[in-house]
Every structure is written in C-alpha cells, then in structure tokens.
C-alpha cells in the first residue's frame, strides 16, 4: 500500500501575537509545529503501513524551514519526504496550494492520500477536497475511523449529529480528524534515522514542471485585501472588593435589564 500524507507546518496559534500597529502576525519566537490533525493523518498512514506493508510519503509545501516538519514526520515513521519550496509558491491560497500538491502527487504511485481535516492557522478545510478534485479521485472528509477491506475502505465520517459509514474504492483522499487516533512520539531510533539515513527531497517549481502563473499568489483566485484585529471593547462596570456587595450590584443591574 502506497500512502501519501500532506502536512503543513504551522505557527502554534495558542502562542500567536499580533503587532497592534501593522496588524500582522509576529512570527518571531513563535514555535512551529506539524499541524495537529495532519499528525493524525500521518499516524493513521503509518499504522496502515505497519499492518499491510507499503510506503508512506510525506509532502509539504513551504519555506526551507518546513524541512523540520518533514524530519519529524520521518522520525515518526514516514519513509520518504518531499519539500515543495520555491519563491513562486509564496502567497498561495488553498486553490493554488492544491494545484501545487496535485502536480507533485501525480508523479507518484499511491493508493491513499491523507490530509488533516484543517490547519489551525487558516481553519479552511479546503485543500483536501480541492486536491482530490485535481487528482480526479473520490474524497471522504472528517474521517474518524478506517477499516480496509480488499481494495476498498470502510470509513466513518463525522456529521453534526452522528456519523455515516461509507464504502469507497481506492485510490481515495481522506481528511483525518483528531478522533482517528493518538499520534505517537518519535522513538530515539526514529529520530536518528530521520536525520542520518532518510532524505528530504527539495522540489522547485521548475523541477515540478509547473507554470509559475498557476501557483503562489499569481495562481490564487482569492486575495486578502485587508486584515484587522477584532474590535469588541465595551465600557464596562467592574465591581471589586466585598463579594456580597459585588454580587448584589450585579444582580441589581441584571434585574434592571430584565435578564433575571
């Protein structure tokens, strides 16, 4: 079984700070991690390989430093890694990202393609389905359980009020949720192999053979035209001191507003 896992290196959003003047992210000092649900995707791929044999290939599109994320994936148990890195890829929206990933994946053999459900920096959940369409294969999103039956999969897909059980033939693209598994920590041996024995292949736009007009900012149908910080301040009345008095004041206000 040949499995491809698409991962993204993201800033740990719980640590993100915004520059109040420029309204942009302060990336300095913010740790980068493998997007959490991409790790669930990777874990599942490695488990399937361990059970059925085959190969796990991880792919990411990003700057040079995204190599760290691929090394971590190799340490967890992936076999091969590709870093799609080129200035031409910068500023890509989900559509251009899917196009770039699809161009790489079409060069490889695969039975299964995994993505995480969504990345914590963008929260879009769009690249998976857009990639599946570009590859011309079916998709199942929001996957929480997978069983393999011959050349088909039986997967549970989460819905608002339960889940559905879907049968689908491979090749197929799945997006993983955190319900799917608990990702492993790399072993010492795994870390050693990831840095000493395994290779991260860096692929540029020309090596990919892709038209620079179709990737990055130029290949993106959408444009971000403004970013702002949310403004929600209210002139509130804050009570301090004696608990009894505070509570009486508050309840009086709520009664006046007919909220109690």
């Amino acid at each position: 079984m040949d499995i491809i896992v698409c991962i993204k290196q993201v800033p740990d959003t719980s640590e993100v700070k915004i520059d109040p003047v420029t309204k942009t992210l302060i990336r300095e000092g913010v740790p980068s991690i493998i997007n959490p649900e991409d790790k669930n995707a990777l874990e599942e791929a490695i488990r399937i390989k361990e059970k059925y044999g085959g190969k796990v290939t991880v792919i990411t599109m990003g700057p040079q430093q995204a190599e760290e994320a691929l090394r971590e994936a190799l340490a967890m148990g992936a076999d091969e890694a590709y870093l799609l890195s080129d200035k031409a890829f910068a500023g890509a929206d989900t559509c251009a990202t899917a196009k770039t990933l699809a161009t790489m994946i079409k060069k490889l053999e695969y039975d299964l393609v995994f993505c995480g459900r969504q990345a914590i920096d963008g929260d879009t959940a769009q690249v998976g389905p857009q990639l599946a369409e570009q590859l011309g294969i079916p998709q199942v999103t929001y996957v929480k359980e997978i069983k393999i039956e011959g050349d088909s999969l039986i997967v549970k897909r989460i819905l608002e009020d339960g889940y559905e059980v879907i049968k689908v033939k491979m090749p197929v693209l799945l997006t993983a949720t955190k319900e799917l598994n608990t990702p492993r920590y790399p072993s010492i041996k795994g870390i050693f192999e990831a840095y000493r024995e395994k290779e991260v292949k860096i692929v540029t736009a020309s090596e990919l053979g892709i038209d620079p007009q179709e990737v990055g900012l130029k290949g993106s149908p959408t444009r971000v035209i403004a970013t702002t910080t949310p403004e929600t301040e209210r002139a509130g009345e804050i009570f301090t001191g004696n608990v009894k008095e505070c509570v009486q004041n508050l309840v009086q206000r709520l009664v006046e507003k007919h909220l109690i």
Binding site: T13, V16, I18, L25, I120, G122, V224, A226, T227
Partner: peptide, 9 residues
C-alpha cells in the same frame, strides 16, 4: 484567521 487573532477581508 489565526485562531480569531485577525479578521481578514
């Protein structure tokens, strides 16, 4: 975007 830290148009 970014966990609600920014609002993008």
């Amino acid at each position: 975007a970014f966990g609600g830290n920014l609002i993008a148009t």
